[in-house]
């Protein structure tokens, strides 16, 4: 995989998430583009590269997300995205054989799965922090069912955003240097990557 391209696109999407994506929000729902890149890489990069990509981009995402803990102190909590995306991509790797990964909708579906699994890790971390340090949970009143519902909606929103994003990412073609995949230089610019 072209790591330089991955980091540049990843940082760009983290910035887009933090600044531009508010224009697409629906009520409390704020869709994110970065999970789409993670899902895209999870479906196309080599198996050893996938967890590293999820880990690094998750670290950047966590460092970009301020959270309020304890008595109003603001920190960047490392873990929710770093571990969540690591867990999510680990679950996506076996699905690569059954997904039509050359289709942007498949990337969108993978993003939904990835976001939902990462959300479970996020919830687990906050439950454990609540038990260990007595910190309040960062989800609204309504309990776990409402939180799961919100998580599902967030996953769908991220999946919707991931579809056009995947189409754009596929336009970068051979620059990704994924194993066994790429566009033909003079062909129909369709993604022709082989399944692994």
């Amino acid at each position: 995989m072209n790591w330089l391209l991955f980091l540049v696109v990843g940082l760009l999407l983290v910035v887009v998430d933090a600044s531009f994506m508010q224009a697409l929000r629906l009520g409390e729902l704020w869709p994110l583009a970065t999970p789409g890149l993670v899902a895209f890489v999870a479906l196309w990069a080599s198996r050893p590269a996938v967890p590293w990509a999820a880990f690094l981009l998750g670290l950047v995402q966590d460092l970009s997300t301020p959270v309020i803990v304890g008595d109003g102190e603001v920190i960047r909590l490392l873990g929710p995205a770093t571990l969540g995306w690591l867990f999510g991509t680990a679950a996506l790797l076996p699905l690569r054989r059954v997904l039509l990964r050359r289709h942007p909708v498949a990337i969108g579906a993978a993003t939904v799965v990835l976001t939902f699994l990462a959300g479970l890790v996020w919830g687990a971390i906050w439950v454990l922090r609540g038990l260990l340090h007595g910190e309040s949970m960062p989800w609204p009143a309504g309990g776990g069912v409402a939180a799961l519902g919100g998580l599902g909606l967030q996953a769908l929103a991220n999946g919707v955003v991931a579809v056009p994003l995947a189409w754009l990412l596929m336009r970068l073609g051979d620059w990704w240097r994924f194993p066994g995949g790429g566009w033909s230089a003079a062909g129909s610019r369709r993604f022709q990557g082989g399944r692994r």
């Binding site: 102190e73 490392l78 873990g79 571990l83 971390i125 260990l132 340090h133």
Partner: peptide, 13 residues
């Protein structure tokens, strides 16, 4: 990172 995720807030400033 898992250890840091569960660390007290004062260690994460």
């Amino acid at each position: 990172v898992a250890c840091l995720a569960l660390a007290p807030a004062r260690f994460l400033v």
